[in-house]
Design a protein around this nucleic acid. Structure first.
Lengths: 339, 339
DNA sequence: TAGTGTAACGAAAACGTTTGCGGTTAATAT
DNA sequence: ATATTAACCGCAAACGTTTTCGTTACACTA
């Protein structure tokens, strides 16, 4: 029904399927006239090679699987933007699957991808994932795998991450250099690693500038919401009245901080500097505008896909593949909430 | 390499491929013992049917194509969430492609999907799209198509939309019923239709309550940014000092309005009520919290996919398909910025 | 005359699966 | 003894490509 095949063309022209195929792919052993007539007819009939057949023959699907915790979140939707665009540019299609940050769902999705025979897998691990058997399974089956964002040392594959520690270090250093001495840090939960790295950067900056690190200056946010930022600011300011800066691990929380300060007549940045993280677009819509750390999220997606495709090509050509971890650079953006 | 096939199992067991296939699919004409031994071995070897081969034989890919303007935007990432989850539940995989709101890119993406032989296409049209030849092409080639969100009457297919007009009507009626008489409306650009529908709902509510519609009370935002909300509020209040309510076509713009009022000592909602649209999560993080209209975005995605898959099944069974337009209901959420 | 070269084409296998149909055996019925 | 039936199995075609390896026909060389 409907779709034109090589066979159709061959029958109409009274030649073999082989010749039609060759004519279309510029094989040298086909007469110029034959070739032209084939091409003409193919054009006229709007012939499109059936990828299902090609894939079966070539044992590849030109499709990549991507597993992320969710997509309705600024970070992931931006990264997906980079992933899909880059993949398409390189001739691959992408299938997105969600783990919902659940370990068992993540496992199911890996299995699904395995069954669907994607050419490679890109994934950001679910926060709660500790059993990594299903990921090792991928390695064992020789499916090219690249981990990004939320990664683990326990898996031997290429990884792409934001250099959270350095980013955080630079942000805190900026606060110190602009005169802050009592810097409170709102960190995220223990896994994922990224939040710990940001905390480590905070600590390191303090140490470098001879400010003694006080654990009670660090508050752990669980939900990473605006409200948490608001409430923890209140708490922090009560417990540490001497505070002159707040470094929050994400913009939304920082915005909550800012809201608390404004609601309570605390001048920002004169009394308290506030530094966010992510450069979410809303950070430009506060008054004053939020200072933050820009992370190249879309580029993260692009880079991850590039590395994955690279590895697929290498394996196909039986080149040796070497794994590595790429750390993408960040940038402090000083706006109105810092001095 | 690597992957187990029916042939492998057949050879090991010394039986034919046919029998192996049948054993695995519970055909009645295979001996219980044979069946068991096949299943056992298949299990042991971790046999997974090759979808590429199955697809080729069945002439279907169990894959759906989705074209949206972008994904790094709350509305679309939420809708994509619904789309992917629902599709997966029903045994389909999804390929997402972006049109970037460009007509020519949209055309390219349609072509790509056509070449890839997806079983159906779901799409939200690019704003600038006026040439719809490529969409008609889909219809002509009998590819099941469902339009959602940004649709057009010129294409005969099923559509799924938010009932923007009614939503807007209810929102404005709420403002009127809580005592507002001079309601300014910030609308969006002309295409897409949704913004016009929201405007129409605004007008209709006015008329129903015998408030004369004044075109100068309607301002057209082009960018739909926070800043536009801020600036247009300033302008509107200068031009219409009697204004007692602002109805913005989206939450971000409404948040900009709120910011202007607060920066200029205008009491919300006492002096001016503000109503947003979308129930974006940030609408809960302002003080006072933003009143808005909730739209079931994720459900929109689910509904669209359901209809598409339904249509695919119908065609496969050669049932007649009938097209229709589903309008999803909305809900006014009164919070702190309205009386 | 036999051998060599070359241009143009096609047969066939392969990728892995599904399924209509026919075949074989053994048991049962007439 | 013959016919009928049921139970079990496998051949082969089909899905649409790609590519290896022939084959054919013809011209040219020695």
């Amino acid at each position: 029904m409907g779709n034109v095949t090589l066979k159709n063309i061959a029958e109409i022209l009274g030649i073999s399927i082989t010749t039609v195929s060759k004519a279309l792919k510029d094989y040298p052993d086909v007469n110029k006239e034959t070739r032209d007539s084939v091409r003409l007819l193919a054009e006229k009939l709007d012939y499109k090679p059936n990828p299902l057949a090609i894939n079966l023959r070539n044992k590849e699907s030109k499709t990549l699987g991507v597993i992320i915790p969710r997509v309705d979140h600024n970070f992931y939707s931006t990264v997906v933007n980079g992933i899909i665009t880059e993949a398409e540019d390189r001739g691959y299609l992408v299938i997105i699957l969600f783990s919902g940050d659940s370990s068992s769902l993540e496992e199911d999705q890996v299995k699904l991808l395995l069954e669907k025979r994607v050419d490679g897998v890109l994934m950001s691990m679910a926060t709660e994932t500790e059993e990594i058997g299903h990921i090792k399974e991928l390695i064992k089956k020789k499916i090219p795998l690249v981990l990004f964002d939320k990664t683990t040392e326990e898996i031997s594959c290429s990884k792409v991450r934001i250099d959270d520690k350095k980013a955080s270090f630079k942000a805190v250093e900026y606060l110190i250099e602009t005169g802050c001495k009592n810097i409170v840090h709102f960190r995220g939960p223990l896994p994922p690693q990224a939040y710990t790295d940001r905390f480590l950067g905070y600590k390191e900056a303090l140490e470098k500038h001879n400010i003694t690190y006080d654990p009670s200056n660090v508050y752990v946010c669980d939900e990473l919401t605006f409200n948490e930022g608001y409430e923890f600011t209140k708490k922090a300011l009560e417990e540490h009245p001497e505070t002159d800066a707040i470094f929050a691990m994400t913009d939304l929380v920082a915005l909550g901080s800012l809201a608390y300060c404004q609601a309570n007549g605390i001048r920002v940045p004169d009394q308290i500097s506030i530094m966010g993280f992510s450069n979410w677009f809303m950070s430009q819509n506060s008054t004053p505008k939020l200072s933050t750390v820009h992370q190249p999220i879309k580029e993260l997606g692009k880079e991850a896909i590039s590395i994955l495709i690279e590895e697929i090509q290498q394996r196909k050509n039986e080149f040796p593949v070497k794994h590595f971890t790429a750390q993408l650079p960040t940038e402090v953006i000083a706006r109105g909430t810092t001095r």
